[in-house]
Design a protein around this nucleic acid. Structure first.
Lengths: 193, 193
DNA sequence: GTCTATAAGTTGATAGAC
DNA sequence: GTCTATCAACTTATAGAC
């Protein structure tokens, strides 16, 4: 993770982001962050008040990144079913899991309003965004009538649960399979051309 | 967790099971286990070789429990769609999450073949079991033809992802909503009576 | 079986020099 | 801004008494 092109504060945030992703909040020590960033204790405590402060910056960044990547696919060209398929089938580092979803399993993150807020907002936004797209699809006649909010939650859950199944299996295959299954079910709501 | 009706070894396993569920492997110390079980260090290291040994016993137990509860619903009465709905809608402590799925986020568990095996087996079994039930449903004419393996993975993913969304939101609602969405999509494959 | 003592290493910081 | 020293508490045991 050490990259001399970034300044210390930047390297510390990026290292924290990666370590939170891989090991969670409890599993990530200031020492490990400093080692990964190539920064000393003095540097870390100069730029940030402590582990919590660094984690906050890292979580905000991961949350923003998730939203940007999702929006890029969801606002793309094509019909609503095509846009949803593009989002679900997007290239992902499946075995690494979701940098934001992962944090929901960390009780210390969820117990801290400051750390928790970006996680809550991100999934709230994603479910609402996909629900809106489903409404759009029904209105345009690209989808048969369905419950938009419930279907949106199901689609987001398939991704988050797909990561769990893939990690359990040790291979990305169950993730891809779950996405295929979800799109197969959804295809029953796509009117014939 | 202290229950004088259980012996020390039993209380240690149950305490470990609960702590792994709530805080994960990294977040659970031998000291916390002993405190929760009302057992001393000597007792713990007499019955178990260490934290890993105790975690192994606890994970085996959680995995067996998940399979038993799932089988109870899945082998129940009714048509295939009814049995799947009964399983998906089963009463759950949603905000607590899944005791087995949670472990997939713990790198120390996934890196250890002994601790990882029960997790891998449990989800492998569950996906195969539901896939078999879907095959049964199609054969009986209770479901229109669909991809059984992919649909099974999608349904299990909806549950695991539902836990993630619920914890992110701080309320069980997104879990219930995701299940409703999944059953709504599946209902398009249930022939009219 | 359970208890207490001991210990080397880590955690998450603070203090003050440069 | 970054460095080194220091620190109290915790982690994950091991040893030996009872």
């Amino acid at each position: 993770m050490y990259d001399p092109a970034m300044d210390s504060a930047e390297r510390l945030i990026e290292s924290t982001r990666q370590l939170l992703w891989e090991r969670g909040y409890t599993g990530t020590s200031p020492k490990a962050i400093q080692l990964s960033a190539g920064a000393g204790q003095g540097s870390m405590y100069h730029h940030f008040s402590g582990k919590r402060d660094l984690a906050h910056a890292a979580i905000e960044r991961s949350s923003a990144a998730l939203r940007e990547r999702a929006e890029a696919q969801l606002s793309g060209p094509g019909t609503v079913p095509e846009r949803l398929a593009a989002y679900l089938r997007r290239q992902r580092d499946v075995l690494k899991g979701c940098a934001v979803g992962r944090l929901t399993q960390d009780p210390d993150v969820m117990a801290d309003p400051l750390l928790r807020a970006p996680v809550e907002e991100t999934f709230g936004w994603l479910r609402a965004r996909i629900s809106g797209i489903l409404v759009e699809g029904v209105e345009r006649g690209e989808l048969s009538p369905l419950d938009p909010a419930a279907t949106a939650s199901a689609l987001v859950a398939v991704l988050q649960g797909g990561y769990v199944l893939a990690r359990a299996a040790g291979t990305p295959e169950p993730f891809t399979e779950a996405v295929t299954g979800a799109l197969g079910l959804l295809s029953a709501f796509v009117p014939a051309p």
